[in-house]
Simulated scan of single mutants.
Amino acid sequence: MKFIKLVLLFCLFLNFTFLSNAQTPSMIKGDAIYLNPYKGNDTNAGTKESPLKTLSEAAKRVNKASGVGTITVYLSSGIYGMNETADFNPVNQKFTKTNRLIIRAEILPDDISWSPSDMPILISTMSFSVEKDDKGQVTGGQNFGILIQNSHATIQGLRVLGEPVHENPSKGMLIRNYPIVWEGKDLEDLRITQCLFLGDKFASPNHLGVLASGKALEVDHCVFYGVKDAVVMWKNPASNASMHHNLIINSYGGIVWTWSATNDFKFYNNVISNANVLWILDKDEKESFLIENSIIVGYNSYVNKGGGAHGFGENANPEKLKIAKDVILKKEGKLEIIEDQTDKFYLHIKAGTLGSNLGAGLFTK
């Protein structure tokens, strides 16, 4: 009888252990993690056949990795509600310039079968941290969508929205969503490419596409449409940074903030239309910058200095921006944009019109 009881207890123990292991998220299998917002589950293995559901869970799996080598997070098409920050902080995984952390769409814009509806859509639904002034009065709040705390990372092929909130709920208060944030010490090499940042200042404000603090930031072949601020470099000497082949339309903030950028910052083959402020320098106007082979049509302010979340600073010395001979700069006017959502070139410059020859937009081929 005692023997039978021992056997039964042993069987129960094995069954409990099996169930516990089955319900515990596994480590990364291989070098890839797959996501599907409809078929996925965050208790799954994260394989193509058994995908995760959320990007935040993918970040937690990456953060458990240990070793050297590329890790790629693949997002299938669909809508990803970001109810918490996807915080990538893999302290035990070593990435390099060639062995990277890659967060990308399964189907990229240069694929023959790609259409705009294939882009994975990220929209923030998370709460905001509370910010108070010296008197204890609430002045606003912020949240981060994707937070990258490591070097050598690429984000590619995503459609990134803001958050459907009231950006200015009361006088002096500002709440804002930062979809992609690069934050940490001594970071180097972040590339944001072939991403579509979409916003509407009334329905779904997208406050700032890319907030970066590190060296060798590269933002290329992205479209920023209706976004308040496109790119802000705000901490550390941001040397060897670049923005090229981007299309920026209807910005109601500042196109690029070079608070921490050094004068080797490269800005070329960008097309800009209907901008509020073209460029914002740090308050001391320490550096000068060169604009090359770009088209800028329609802007309110040319170059400002200072500013912050609540404002765009004041007029700066216009000679701090050097304009190459191959740049078209017009204060008034607008460019022709394709608004047909069934067109592969949706939200791009209409072929044969001003700005269409510079290769700005989602396509590299």
Results as ranks from 00 to 15, higher is better:
residue 170 S to I: 00
residue 346 Y to G: 00
residue 85 T to Q: 01
residue 238 A to H: 05
residue 281 L to I: 00
residue 76 S to V: 01
residue 34 Y to S: 02
residue 203 A to C: 04
residue 172 G to Y: 00
residue 254 G to V: 15
residue 323 I to F: 01
residue 1 M to S: 15
residue 204 S to T: 12
residue 28 I to F: 06
residue 76 S to P: 04
residue 94 K to R: 15
residue 140 G to W: 14
residue 113 S to T: 14
residue 3 F to V: 14
residue 29 K to M: 08
residue 234 W to R: 09
residue 160 V to S: 05
residue 100 R to M: 13
residue 290 L to V: 10
residue 74 Y to I: 10
residue 166 H to V: 13
residue 211 L to W: 13
residue 113 S to N: 12
residue 143 N to G: 12
residue 261 A to H: 10
residue 54 T to F: 00
residue 190 L to D: 00
residue 256 V to E: 07
residue 360 A to Y: 02
residue 49 E to W: 04
residue 301 S to D: 13
residue 198 L to W: 09
residue 103 I to P: 00
residue 296 I to W: 07
residue 119 M to A: 12
residue 97 K to H: 05
residue 311 G to H: 14
residue 101 L to K: 03
residue 169 P to K: 09
residue 102 I to Y: 03
residue 322 K to Q: 13
residue 252 Y to T: 14
residue 102 I to G: 00
residue 287 E to L: 04
residue 13 F to M: 10
residue 27 M to P: 11
residue 212 A to Y: 15
residue 28 I to Q: 03
residue 283 K to C: 09
residue 178 Y to I: 09
residue 279 W to A: 00
residue 191 R to P: 00
residue 196 L to V: 11
residue 112 I to S: 15
residue 107 I to F: 06
residue 241 A to L: 02
residue 34 Y to P: 00
residue 156 Q to D: 11
residue 293 N to A: 05
residue 278 L to H: 02
residue 297 V to C: 02
residue 205 P to G: 08
residue 7 V to E: 08
residue 329 L to R: 04
residue 234 W to C: 04
residue 53 K to S: 11
residue 47 T to H: 09
residue 356 S to W: 11
residue 22 A to C: 05
residue 308 G to R: 05
residue 160 V to H: 07
residue 170 S to H: 01
residue 82 M to C: 09
residue 156 Q to Y: 10
residue 201 K to I: 13
residue 322 K to H: 10
residue 51 P to Q: 02
residue 145 G to I: 06
residue 113 S to G: 08
residue 344 K to R: 15
residue 239 S to G: 07
residue 116 P to D: 06
residue 190 L to K: 03
residue 77 S to V: 04
residue 77 S to W: 00
residue 243 M to K: 01
residue 175 I to A: 10
residue 183 E to Q: 12
residue 79 I to Q: 11
residue 356 S to L: 09
residue 27 M to N: 14
residue 316 A to F: 06
residue 60 K to G: 02
residue 288 S to K: 07
residue 54 T to K: 00
residue 5 K to W: 12
residue 207 H to E: 15
residue 69 G to K: 10
residue 53 K to Y: 07
residue 77 S to L: 03
residue 165 V to D: 04
residue 223 V to T: 14
residue 187 L to E: 06
residue 39 K to T: 12
residue 155 I to H: 06
residue 37 P to N: 03
residue 192 I to C: 02
residue 202 F to Q: 13
residue 157 G to S: 09
residue 78 G to K: 00
